[in-house]
Design a protein around this nucleic acid. Structure first.
Lengths: 107, 107
DNA sequence: TTATTATATTGCAATATTACGATAAACAAA
DNA sequence: TTTGTTTATCGTAATATTGCAATATAATAA
């Protein structure tokens, strides 16, 4: 088939899968890394930082934005992209839950 | 093209992307969830828990194992799969780093 | 108005993923 | 041995992802 049976899983499971999918490509990890090293949030020069064409980077940015991992605000002609700390919190909480449940396990 | 330009990114970036890709499907999130709710680690019955055929689940387990998110040890005819806490640590550390770097940002 | 600059969208080819039936492999029990 | 039980692999169809050239859009500058 190819399409995932997302109906069969919980909303929470689908949400987490969507977040991880947004982070599942090295270019998108690199974009997040870059956003974290730049002092200001003005980030139109990501194109110069990565070995990918502008449309490809625009596409990766869109996926990160759709997943709420970054947010972008228009700043004249440029766009200011930056990390959305709320989503980072969400992912951290998920792993906190995993860590908590692991405490009582045999592994 | 379709293939990602993994050569162009750092080893660390590729590693994290691989980990997130392993978690980027609701069925694999559900498998991790299930492993966390079961007291013992004997997990051959995941097939009964998820609405997917046995070969599909075997494939998802293989991907989780390749990414070191779970480990499996042979237990007679069955296989005991369980979470690999080391990999959970690795992911948590990554977000710890993100959180740390975010402290000084404008977002 | 006409550039110029920054970003997004479209369209398409190459590749990867997902799902499952059929089958194989490995092992225990009868 | 044969039978059943458990897990893995093969083959294949349906779908999704990736990357980029070409083009479009939007805002500013001249």
């Amino acid at each position: 088939m190819g399409a995932s049976k997302s109906d069969s899983f919980s909303i929470e499971q689908n949400e987490m899968a969507t977040l991880f999918k947004a982070l599942s490509h090295p270019a998108r990890i690199a974009i997040v890394d870059y956003l974290l090293t730049v002092d200001t949030c003005i980030c139109g020069d990501i194109v110069n930082e990565l070995p990918l064409a502008q449309p490809t980077i625009s596409q990766h940015l869109k996926e990160l934005k759709n997943a709420n991992i970054i947010k972008g605000t228009i700043e004249g002609t440029a766009i200011c992209y930056c990390i959305n700390p709320d989503t980072i919190d969400k992912i951290e909480n998920h792993f906190g839950m995993i860590r908590h449940k692991l405490k009582n396990k045999c592994c």
